[in-house]
């Protein structure tokens, strides 16, 4: 058993009188893919923002690799819910500016390394041909691919994804899920992934463990479920296994119960 890499102890976040999340305990080991699942408004995104360092928890502590998180850092890359690309920059510039901000080296050699990295990632997500387009000229799937490439481009240790594919159609979503898994297994530096979703199939297909949240306010961890499916996973074969069916049923039950739990 490896030591926890990301450790949340009694984390809570209140906005004035409103408590979004409370008493969150969670340990994530290095190299794990963990999904946070729950109904909308249950504070999943709040929790992810706290780990990203975009907010400070009002209770408890968050430690990454033994050090408390005090703000955003280049060790954590993030894909936002609304892709958050800068509309005046091309696909290439959106990714390059992030890399350049994190690795500010000015020497030609260093710049070449950055350019190579951007090119490689844009090729992996199939956007190299579209590198000069602005986000406004792209489809929703291409925008989110750019955002994923940008997050990987800064070589983060932890990747945070906030409902990254929520706004996409089912076909685009499945292909992006596969690309995400490819990038994750292919990129040795980025080992640990935390993803927020409300899609049960997505959670099962992608993660090692699924954290089911109770409903807000005062949302907390309802249960942490192991996904007993070996990698690499094959989407269609997976759908017909008993393990998958049991897991999905269990998750659905947990999510259906949450109203009762929330009221208690």
């Amino acid at each position: 058993m490896t030591a926890p890499y990301l450790e949340l102890r009694g984390v809570g976040q209140s906005f004035g009188k409103y408590t979004a999340v409370a008493g969150i305990d969670l340990s994530v080991t290095r190299g794990e893919f963990v999904t946070l699942i729950g109904h909308s408004g249950c504070g999943k995104s709040t929790l992810l923002n706290l780990i990203a360092g975009l907010g400070k928890p009002t209770a408890g502590s968050i430690e990454l690799d033994g050090k408390p998180i005090s703000g955003p850092g280049a060790d954590r890359g993030m894909v936002f819910q609304n892709h958050s690309l800068l509309p005046w920059l091309s696909v290439y510039a959106n990714v390059y500016e992030a890399v350049d901000a994190v690795f500010p080296g000015r020497r030609p050699q260093e710049k070449q390394v950055k350019r190579d990295r951007v090119e490689r990632l844009l090729r992996v997500v199939g956007l190299w041909e579209h590198r000069d387009k602005r986000p406004g000229e792209l489809s929703g799937g291409m925008r989110q691919r750019t955002a994923v490439a940008r997050a990987f481009a800064i070589v983060p240790r932890v990747l945070l994804l906030d409902e990254p594919f929520g706004a996409l159609d089912a076909l685009t979503r499945t292909s992006l899920q596969d690309e995400l898994i490819n990038l994750w297994s292919f990129d040795q530096a980025t080992e640990t992934v935390l993803m927020v979703t409300h899609d049960i199939d997505e959670a099962i297909y992608l993660s090692d463990r699924i954290v089911v949240m109770t409903n807000g306010p005062r949302a907390t961890v309802r249960e942490v479920v192991q996904v007993p499916l070996a990698r690499p996973r094959e989407r269609h074969a997976m759908l017909h296994t008993a393990a998958y069916a049991d897991l999905k049923e269990h998750l659905l039950e947990l999510l259906a119960e949450r109203a009762v739990v929330g009221a208690a």
Binding site: A52, G53, L54, G71, P72, G73, A74, R76, G77, M78, F80, N82, S84, L86, E97, A98, A101, V102, R150, I154
Partner: peptide
């Protein structure tokens, strides 16, 4: 969202 991009990507 633009401000968050600036913060996350340093």
């Amino acid at each position: 969202s633009h401000k968050n991009v600036a913060r996350v990507f340093q």
